[in-house]
């Protein structure tokens, strides 16, 4: 079932990305002030949005893991954190390239950028926590708590450009943002295309972790059974024994 969902999602992702490439490079008009470099926005925005959605998904899965004590929620949370980290890293990289051209610097301590970097470090810590050897149930609880606490930064990232004085452009702002119709259509198409890519990566990673956990439990059960069974009788080597 998961297999076919991944295949459909990956196929839709590939097709929609191909359409988006045409929309971005051939159809969407060039922005008057920033010029061609504004087109970075069509990849930066979907990466940022799906990165944040990924962390929200991880937070929801972690909550379910703590409530229901089910391993599969922990594995889903781990997959979502990993996918979110990929998207968050690419958001920071593409944003940095845009900033170098538009602001003249690779990085500035702007509220939006700073909160996004804090988010990156929180979830990098969460991923590092998973590599520490400790009992699985304890690791699941600990990582769930970190994932939930880390999610508190997500609304801050989203609202930072409005709450504090920020130089980061707020495209879909309360006043409409000022996007041309063709630009808005391209941006929405890119968000939709990156959704399928995000979903495919999330499900592929989840399936891998699920299979790995199933293999662990089969091996563990075998070892447990082998310990419970009495040792097989060995032939006496000497008659006096």
């Amino acid at each position: 079932m998961l297999h076919s969902k991944i295949a459909i999602s990956a196929l839709l992702g590939g097709l929609s990305l191909a359409i988006c490439q045409w929309l971005v490079f051939a159809w969407a008009p060039e922005e008057k002030v920033m010029g061609l470099v504004q087109k970075i926005f069509y990849m930066h925005l979907p990466l940022a949005w799906w990165g944040l959605v990924s962390f929200a998904t991880a937070c929801a899965a972690s909550l379910l893991c703590l409530i229901r004590h089910d391993r599969k929620y922990d594995l889903f949370s781990a997959s979502a954190v990993e996918t979110g980290m990929l998207f968050c890293t690419l958001t920071l990289v593409t944003g940095s390239i845009w900033g170098r051209h538009s602001w003249g610097v690779w990085w500035t301590w702007d509220p939006r950028l700073t909160t996004a970097l804090i988010l990156w470090f929180i979830y990098a810590g969460c991923m590092a926590l998973r590599s520490i050897p400790m009992p699985e149930h304890r690791k699941a609880s600990l990582c769930s708590v970190v994932t939930i606490v880390g999610f508190l930064d997500v609304p801050l990232v989203f609202l930072s450009a409005r709450l504090w004085r920020s130089i980061h452009p707020s495209v879909f702002a309360a006043n409409g943002g000022g996007l041309d119709m063709q630009m808005a259509v391209t941006a929405i198409a890119c968000v939709a295309a990156f959704f399928f890519i995000w979903l495919s990566l999330l499900l592929i990673r989840y399936r891998q972790l699920l299979l790995s956990a199933r293999l662990d439990s089969i091996i563990f059960e075998q070892l447990f059974k082998a310990e419970q069974e009495p040792a097989p009788k060995t032939k006496k080597l000497y008659a006096s024994e």
Partner: peptide
């Protein structure tokens, strides 16, 4: 600008 755009795309 095109080079910066391609750099972001490559990244």
């Amino acid at each position: 600008a095109l080079a910066w755009l391609m750099a972001a795309n490559a990244a």
